[in-house]
Computed example of a mutant assay.
Amino acid sequence: MKRWAPYVLLIVVSAIWGAHAVVGAAALQALSPLSLSVWRYTFTAILFVPAMIFALRRLRALTKQDIWLLFAASLTSAVIYPLFFYQSLDILPPIESLLIVNAAPVLTALFAYFLYREKISKKQMIGLFIALVGVIVISSQAASRGTDSLWAIGDAVIGTASFAMYTVISRKLYTRLPLFDVLAVTSFAGAVMLWLLVIITHSWSVATVLSTLTVNGWISLLFIVIFVSTLAYILYGYGLARVPGAVSAALTFYPQSIFAAILQWIWLGQVVTLVTVIGGIIILSGSMIMRRT
């Protein structure tokens, strides 16, 4: 059982992250993208207080490069990514937003090339092009629904780019710092940045919005905090240390769309369209080609 435990846990992570899109869409019925982002990372930071206490002892010895990497990781993963992803979820069906975000490996390869000069093979270029075609297919369907949907596609792409950048940055961080240190610091720093954004934009309603939440709203928010932001990342770190990289990526990445599609149908009553299925298959095929090279 111990031998299979990491593999099972990675599939659990995939289910949690797949469900995130649907639960996030449900939460947005009561919360704005900014409110959801702020309270998600505020509560997540509270959960990581014990880890932060231990991390503070080691943070004093950080180099300037480490500090800048942590700042960039916090900005991309806890501010830009959730704000734009949730903004897209406010308009698009969850599965469409998730499939676009699942094209992140494409941009990850490009960012790694420009930042660290990691080579991109011919097969990777083919995979990149194929995934881009899939995004275009889904975008064409969104465009047919009106300008708002097309703008939401743009939001999803920005969120995808931000998550891809975080992936590249975190590779460096995890070779220098323990997993819990990175998660604690990025959660705390992200929460601080989001509250600064509240102050700058005078979005004072964010501070009082929780008093109006229904039971379903609280369930959605707490699921995102406890399972998506905390448990899933811990399990992912555990699995990564015990499962080969290519296998762990496949287990956590590819099944997400299946879980999201099923939950979207059950919870929101939204059936996945044929165009979305075709676009998703194209995106996942392109990403699979890139991961196998």
Results as ranks from 00 to 15, higher is better:
residue 217 G to L: 10
residue 212 T to R: 04
residue 163 F to I: 05
residue 204 W to L: 03
residue 282 I to F: 05
residue 43 F to H: 08
residue 154 G to T: 03
residue 115 L to W: 12
residue 255 P to R: 02
residue 212 T to Q: 09
residue 280 G to S: 07
residue 52 M to S: 05
residue 55 A to S: 15
residue 274 L to W: 14
residue 267 W to L: 09
residue 184 A to H: 11
residue 53 I to Q: 01
residue 269 G to F: 09
residue 40 R to W: 02
residue 206 V to E: 09
residue 178 P to F: 06
residue 27 A to Q: 12
residue 127 G to D: 15
residue 23 V to W: 07
residue 251 L to T: 11
residue 190 G to K: 09
residue 286 G to E: 15
residue 168 V to M: 00
residue 139 S to Y: 13
residue 203 S to H: 05
residue 195 W to Q: 08
residue 187 S to P: 03
residue 114 F to P: 13
residue 275 V to T: 13
residue 63 T to F: 02
residue 50 P to N: 07
residue 138 I to R: 05
residue 143 A to M: 10
residue 178 P to H: 04
residue 217 G to F: 11
residue 7 Y to W: 04
residue 179 L to W: 01
residue 96 E to I: 10
residue 85 F to L: 05
residue 224 I to Q: 11
residue 112 A to D: 14
residue 181 D to V: 14
residue 1 M to C: 07
residue 198 V to H: 05
residue 176 R to F: 01
residue 4 W to R: 02
residue 144 S to E: 03
residue 18 G to M: 10
residue 160 T to W: 02
residue 244 P to H: 06
residue 51 A to P: 09
residue 270 Q to L: 12
residue 110 L to V: 15
residue 94 P to A: 04
residue 48 F to Y: 08
residue 282 I to K: 10
residue 26 A to G: 08
residue 83 L to W: 04
residue 94 P to Q: 09
residue 236 Y to Q: 07
residue 136 I to Q: 09
residue 249 A to H: 11
residue 95 I to G: 11
residue 199 I to N: 04
residue 121 S to E: 14
residue 112 A to P: 10
